[in-house]
């Protein structure tokens, strides 16, 4: 039982971390960023470069965040901005962008799996179980991330502006909030979060140009189910991640892989606005 509990909590923490960047962008910009998977890959390769340069493996996290942020700013300006009024087209354009990023990574780094040094390895005794140290660390990191995001939204100038834009963009603009700037920063932030998440999961996965693809759909489903709120995303990660672990453990790991997608489609049919909204 203890292991099951740890599996669920750590899986939820990973899902939360991976999906947070997508959620920030959807929440503020009402835009679904299908290049999310590509940003995860960028993070993975930032971690790879960190290893190549011989830096401390923990450095991969801030490095990935910076790379993601800068790229996010550029992409928002060039590609995303013309698409605000066309949300379905934005999905397609960002998907195309994901293809482009994936191919550029392939051309620069090659198609093969790269190896990244892990900041933590091995297992420790926890709750009477020998359990992966890094997965446990990810729970702490996920928690810090959630708190940091809440703090950012509720205790900073940017957060105030962002919340104003979320509630009523026209009104916010009327109040002198530069909503274009808020959107720009948000996209950069979302890209930075995704990229950081990509670096964070590299010790668990293999680094290759398509590493983000399997995560994209699950993140997308989680964010929609969450009703686009941070507590909602935490709960959605726990419920859907938990369901995935349970199905994988007691039924079959193959069905487990479909759990999030199917469950999300059903939940959204019953509650289109997500679990924790309105």
């Amino acid at each position: 039982m203890g292991v099951l509990f740890l599996d669920i909590v750590t899986t939820a923490a990973i899902l939360f971390t991976v999906a947070s960047g997508l959620m920030i962008i959807l929440g503020v910009m009402k835009l679904i960023n299908f290049a999310h998977g590509a940003f995860l890959a960028i993070g993975g390769y930032a971690a790879f470069v960190t290893t190549q340069l011989g830096w401390n493996p923990w450095m991969a996290i801030p490095f990935a965040a910076v790379v993601g942020f800068v790229l996010g700013l550029v992409i928002e300006r060039v590609i995303v901005r013309p698409l605000y009024a066309r949300p379905l087209d934005a999905i397609l354009a960002t998907w195309g962008l994901g293809i482009v990023i994936g191919q550029v990574i392939t051309i620069v780094f090659g198609r093969e799996v790269q190896f990244v040094q892990s900041p933590l390895s091995g297992a420790i005794e926890f709750l009477g179980q020998s359990y992966s140290t890094y997965r446990l660390a990810l729970v702490a990191i996920g928690a810090i991330l959630a708190l940091a995001l809440i703090a950012l939204l509720y205790f900073t100038r940017f957060g105030l502006n962002a919340r104003a834009v979320i509630m009523n963009e026209d009104l916010a603009r009327g109040l002198g909030i530069d909503s274009t700037r808020v959107r720009l920063t948000t996209f950069g932030l979302g890209a930075a979060l995704a990229s950081m998440a990509g670096a964070l999961i590299t010790p668990l996965i293999s680094v290759d140009p398509n590493l983000g693809l399997p995560w994209l759909i699950n993140s997308f489903m989680l964010v929609l189910v969450s009703g686009v709120s941070i507590p909602g995303l935490i709960v959605a990660s726990l419920i859907l991640g938990g369901a995935q672990v349970l199905v994988s453990s007691y039924v079959s790991a193959i069905l487990g892989g479909l759990t999030i997608v199917v469950l999300a489609a059903v939940i959204l049919r019953i509650r289109p606005q997500g679990l924790f909204s309105g």
């Binding site: 599996d7 668990l204 672990v245």
Partner: peptide
Amino acid sequence: DGTDWTPIIS
């Protein structure tokens, strides 16, 4: 394309 082996490892 699965990446999470956790339940299987458990």
